[in-house]
């Protein structure tokens, strides 16, 4: 590794001129709550590492599937199913991390016309919606996953509850991060990104 891995962002804030606070420019830079609270930072770093692991692991399974077909001549019947399950876990853990960075794709057309105060109110409302829906999904998912424990996946014989747990974990993370952001919106309204800034962050 050529660069030093520091606990502070390696680049300064370029967008949020209102506060002068440092906004992370790279996906591994800690953001405001990560800088302020170390248990929270450990959680987010775990999400980062888990998501990367699922991504690389699924890639490995795809390659294994090709190799098993052409080199061993008898394909494994379980690579595809396991890769699909890897994709599910990757999706929901990543979605949790994306919520931590609050960059889930949204339509900013109305928000961009509002003033600063309006943006903060709108953002808090959107977070409330996310909290309610993800809380419901996490709750229903836990129940559904428990019931699905008796069913087995056809090729790998893994319990189907393992599959549905990915959604439980993902929506729990989303709900938690949305709660953190809601708290920050109230305590530090200056941190709420402007709509235009959001567009740029989603875009890059």
């Amino acid at each position: 590794m050529s660069e030093e891995v520091g606990s502070y962002p390696t680049s300064g804030n370029e967008n949020n001129l209102a506060t002068g606070l440092r906004v992370p420019q790279e996906p591994d830079d800690p953001d405001f709550p990560e800088q302020r609270n170390s248990p929270y930072r450990y959680l987010v770093v775990t999400e980062r590492l888990a998501a990367c692991t699922f991504l690389v692991g699924t890639l490995g399974l795809i390659i294994l599937q090709v190799v098993s077909r052409y080199i061993f001549n008898s394909p494994f019947s379980w690579t595809e199913e396991l890769a699909r399950f890897g994709l599910l876990w990757f999706t929901f853990v990543s979605a949790g991390f994306v919520m931590a960075r609050r960059i889930h794709i949204a339509v900013d057309i109305v928000a961009s016309k509002l003033g600063r105060k309006g943006t903060v109110v709108l953002d808090t409302f959107a977070l409330a919606m996310v909290i309610i829906a993800s809380g419901m999904m996490a709750f229903a998912g836990a129940e559904f996953a428990a019931e699905a424990a008796r069913l087995q996946a056809p090729a790998t014989s893994l319990p189907m509850s393992l599959v549905y747990s990915s959604a439980v974990v993902g929506f729990t993370l989303i709900c938690f991060h949305a709660l953190v952001h809601m708290y920050l919106n109230i305590r530090h309204p200056e941190l709420v990104p402007d709509a235009m800034e959001n567009l740029e962050r989603e875009a890059v």
Binding site: P27, C52, V93, V98, I105
Partner: peptide, 13 residues
């Protein structure tokens, strides 16, 4: 990898 995680997480959800 993390940039991929950010884009994919949003799109796949």
């Amino acid at each position: 990898l993390l940039t991929t995680v950010e884009t994919s997480g949003s799109v796949l959800l």
